[in-house]
């Protein structure tokens, strides 16, 4: 498969009062044409910053991209002049955000906002852009789109606004759609509608999606590849079957066993002890070490690199060859980390 976007060794640093914070530290990612890559992590792990760096939208100051490269069709986006970058944003790579409520400008109608994007990137007259806008809104499932063009954002529900955001992002047929927590602010029934819409649009246009989320259910149902991010680095990367079927990093394993799953009532929840480390002062060696069940001497000193375990499945753990879900089950059973089942009896 053709690699469309390749991020290698990306480093982003934010200057804070307490010193420089490494928000992204050596991230490598690849997005194949026509597929969906899920980027999973907890808040503050650097997943949104990674997305913003792709479009070079890091607020600066305080943020700086300090290293690495982002290759899009062979061109390094980080080295492009700002003018070329403007052409890429929205045209080749576009983005939708978590809050549909604040991503639209409340003083313009949605028609004006969609037309603005189209006229900026494609040489079209206002009338042509209007026609295109109607077609796109129809495509994203907005009823009576010609009338809806004249409405203001506050006249629409959250789900409708997210559809409009998707319409705007898709108006120039981008190659890559970056979706930063697109359904987190929406109710589950609306989430289902939006995900279905994204899936069917991908089937039709063949664009690639970088889907950022903390919801494992969303990733499992949407992505073909998954990257798990912890403390500014990727800790595990692989196909969705590899990650969900055969996770090899203790953080991934901990994450999967700590969420309640419907229909598995009574299963005890594992708890990853402690808190996410502060990006200003990461622990030495492996950053997951203070919270890890398998931490050893080696983890104190050496930061484990992201190493291939099997074809295409990589994990950043010194022991990823030996740790798997069976070892994990044994370990968590004996460590008495779990609530006994009598609670649910």
């Amino acid at each position: 498969m053709e690699t469309l976007l390749k991020i290698s060794n990306l480093k982003v640093c934010f200057d804070t009062d307490d010193g420089p914070a490494m928000a992204v530290d050596g991230v490598d990612l690849e997005i194949m044409k026509g597929t969906t890559l899920g980027l999973v992590g907890e808040s503050g792990c650097g997943k949104s910053v990674t997305c913003l760096s792709v479009l070079r939208l890091i607020p600066s100051p305080p943020g700086r991209i300090t290293g690495g490269e982002i290759l899009y069709k062979g061109r390094n986006l980080l080295a492009l002049p700002e003018k070329d970058m403007e052409r890429i944003r929205g045209n080749d790579i576009s983005m939708i955000f978590q809050e549909p409520m604040t991503s639209l400008n409340p003083v313009f109608t949605i028609g004006e906002q969609i037309k603005e994007v189209i006229m900026l990137h494609q040489h079209k007259t206002s009338a042509e852009a209007g026609e295109l806008a109607v077609r796109i809104l129809d495509k994203v499932g907005i009823p009576s789109p010609a009338i809806r063009l004249k409405s203001y954002p506050h006249q629409m529900s959250g789900g409708m606004k997210q559809r409009v955001m998707i319409a705007m992002a898709l108006s120039c047929n981008p190659e890559i759609l970056i979706a930063d927590e697109p359904t987190t602010a929406l109710d589950v029934t609306i989430q289902a509608q939006i995900l279905e819409l994204m899936q069917s649009l991908q089937d039709e246009y063949g664009m690639s999606i970088l889907l950022v989320t903390h919801d494992l259910g969303v990733v499992a149902s949407m992505a073909s590849h998954v990257a798990i991010m912890y403390a500014s680095s990727i800790v595990e990367y692989g196909s969705v079957e590899d990650i969900f079927g055969n996770p090899r990093h203790p953080y991934t394993l901990g994450l999967f066993t700590s969420i309640p799953v419907i229909g598995k009532r009574g299963r005890a929840l594992y708890v990853i002890p402690g808190n996410v480390p502060d990006p200003v002062s990461f622990p030495r060696g492996c950053r997951f070490r203070p919270r890890c069940l398998f931490a050893a001497e080696q983890c104190m000193t050496q930061k484990p690199p992201l190493r291939e375990i099997r074809h295409g499945h990589r994990a950043a753990c010194h022991f990823s060859q030996t740790i798997d879900k069976y070892v994990w089950k044994e370990k968590t059973k004996t460590a008495s980390f779990l609530i006994s089942d009598e609670q649910h009896g």
Binding site: V271, I272, P273, G274, N275, S336, F337, I339
Partner: peptide
């Protein structure tokens, strides 16, 4: 009971 199952957090403030 030990507090491990609820994730003791009293170290890093």
């Amino acid at each position: 009971r030990n507090n491990l199952s609820t994730g003791e957090t009293s170290r890093d403030l």
